[in-house]
Design a protein around this nucleic acid. Structure first.
Length: 395
RNA sequence: GUGACCCUGGAUCGC
C-alpha cells in the first residue's frame, strides 16, 4: 500500500493517468479508498494528471476530507489554468491552512494576476517565506521589479521576519539584480548571505554566478564557481554565458570542455552565445557536433538554431532545422513556432511562413506579430489586417 | 500508515 501511495505521487503528467487508474483499482480491491490518506493520494493524482472532473467526482464522494483534499483540488484547477474555479473552491473551504493560501497566491502570481495575488497575500493571516517569495518572484517575472524590491524592503522592516529570510527569497532577489544588472545591490545581498547563516546551495550559487555574469563582473563569478566543491551544469552554463557575452571565448570553451560529454544545458548556452555574437557558422557547426554527441535538442536549442539561420539568411539550413524540429515534435512549441515563422520571413520565403502558420492551432501575441510581418511581406494585407484585428491583446 | 501526503528559487530560447 505504501508503494501504491508513492506510485500515485509519481503520476504527474497527462500520460500517467493510465497507471493512476490501475492503482485506483488496486486500492478499491483493498477497500482503502475511503481512508482519507489514500483518497487524498488519488485526488492528487487526478489533479496532477489534469483530470479535474475525475478529481471533483472523487472529492464529492469522499466520506471525509481534510485540508489536503481541498488543496489538491485547488492545485488541480490552478494547474489546468482554471483560476476562477480555484478561487471559488478556496473561498468555500471550511478552513484554510498555510498551503491553501500559498497555493492560490503562487497560482495567481505565476500567471501574472499580481493584484489578485497581492490581495490574497495581504489577507493571509500568517505568512511564511513561501508566500513572500511567491509574491516577490511574481512581481519580478512579470516586469515589476520595483514592486518586488519594495516588498522585499517591507519584509526586512520587521526584524523577526527579516531573520527568517531564506535561500529561496535571496535567490529570487539575486535574480532580480541579474535582470536589472544591479551589481551594487547584488553585492550587498551577497554580503548579507555571507554574514547570515544561509547555506550556499547549488541554486543560490548558480544564481549568484548568473548575476555577476550579467553584470560583467566575471572575476567574482569565477570566484564563486571555484569555491564550489561540485558546481552543477547551471553554474557552469551561467559562467559560460557570462564569458561569452564579454567575448572571452577561450574561457568559455575551456569551461564547456570541462565535462567530456557536455549536457544539453551546456550545449544550449554555447549555442545561444554564438548566435548572440553573430557567429552563425559556428552555431551550425556546434549543432552538428551536438547531434554527433547524441544529445537531443530541446525548444531552446531549436529557437537558437532557427534564429541563427534567420540572421544568416540561409533558407536551406533553416528548412532542415525546421524539418528536424518537426520530426521530434518540437514545432508546436510556441517559441519554436514563432522562430520558424521569423526564420522564413528573414530568409525571404514568407510563403513558407504562411503555409506553416496554417498548421498551427495555438498562437500567442508574439507569434501573431511575426505573422503580420509575414503577410505584409507577401502583400496579403487583408490577412495581416485580419490578424491584427483578431489579436486578443495588442502591444 | 497520521507529527504521513500538498506550496516558493537558478542557465539557455521568439516579434
Amino acid at each position: 500500500l505504501n508503494s501504491c501511495a508513492r506510485l500515485l505521487q509519481s503520476c504527474r503528467t497527462h500520460q500517467s493517468i493510465f497507471q493512476g487508474r490501475q492503482i485506483h483499482l488496486v486500492l478499491l480491491k483493498r477497500g482503502v479508498v475511503s481512508v482519507v490518506f489514500f483518497a487524498n493520494c488519488l485526488l492528487q493524482m487526478y489533479s496532477n494528471c489534469g483530470r479535474l472532473i475525475d478529481a471533483r467526482h472523487l472529492f464529492d464522494e469522499m466520506p471525509q476530507r481534510n485540508e489536503f483534499s481541498w488543496n489538491s483540488l485547488i492545485e488541480g484547477c490552478l494547474k489546468s489554468r482554471d483560476n476562477g474555479t480555484a478561487l471559488e473552491i478556496f473561498s468555500s473551504m471550511p478552513c484554510r491552512n498555510i498551503f491553501s493560501w500559498n497555493a492560490v497566491i503562487t497560482g495567481f502570481a505565476k500567471c501574472g494576476d499580481l493584484d489578485i495575488a497581492r490581495r490574497l497575500f495581504n489577507e493571509m493571516p500568517v505568512r511564511n517565506m513561501t508566500a513572500w517569495n511567491s509574491m516577490i518572484h511574481g512581481y519580478i517575472q512579470h516586469g515589476r521589479p520595483n514592486e518586488a524590491l519594495s516588498l522585499f524592503k517591507k519584509l526586512n522592516l520587521d526584524p523577526a521576519e527579516s531573520a527568517r529570510v531564506d535561500n529561496f527569497v535571496l535567490t529570487t532577489i539575486i535574480g532580480a539584480c541579474a535582470n536589472l544588472e544591479a551589481l551594487d545591490y547584488g553585492k550587498q545581498i551577497h554580503a548579507r548571505i555571507i554574514v547570515s547563516d544561509v547555506e550556499f546551495d547549488s541554486v543560490l550559487c548558480s544564481s549568484l554566478i548568473n548575476m555577476y555574469g550579467k553584470c560583467r563582473d566575471l572575476d567574482s563569478a569565477a570566484c564563486i564557481l571555484n569555491w564550489m566543491t561540485e558546481p552543477d551544469e547551471f553554474s557552469l552554463s551561467a559562467l559560460i554565458s557570462g564569458y561569452a557575452s564579454c567575448g572571452r571565448w577561450i574561457e568559455a570553451r575551456r569551461l564547456f570542455h570541462r565535462s567530456r560529454s557536455p549536457s544539453l544545458v551546456l550545449w544550449n548556452s554555447m549555442i545561444s552565445s554564438c548566435v548572440h555574437n553573430g557567429q552563425g557558422e559556428d552555431t551550425l557547426e556546434l549543432f552538428n557536433k551536438m547531434r554527433v554527441d547524441r544529445t537531443s535538442a530541446d525548444a531552446s536549442t531549436f529557437a537558437s538554431m532557427l534564429s541563427a539561420c534567420a540572421s544568416l539568411g540561409v533558407l536551406e539550413n533553416g528548412k532542415q532545422v525546421h524539418a528536424h524540429a518537426y520530426k521530434v515534435g518540437m514545432v508546436y512549441d510556441k517559441i519554436v513556432a514563432s522562430t520558424v515563422i521569423d526564420m522564413y520571413c528573414k530568409c525571404g520565403s514568407s510563403e513558407n511562413a504562411c503555409k506553416f502558420f496554417g498548421e498551427l492551432k495555438e498562437y500567442d501575441t508574439i507569434l501573431l506579430n511575426s505573422m503580420i510581418n509575414a503577410y505584409s511581406n507577401c502583400g496579403r494585407i487583408e490577412e495581416a489586417r485580419w490578424i491584427f484585428d483578431a489579436m486578443p491583446c495588442r502591444s
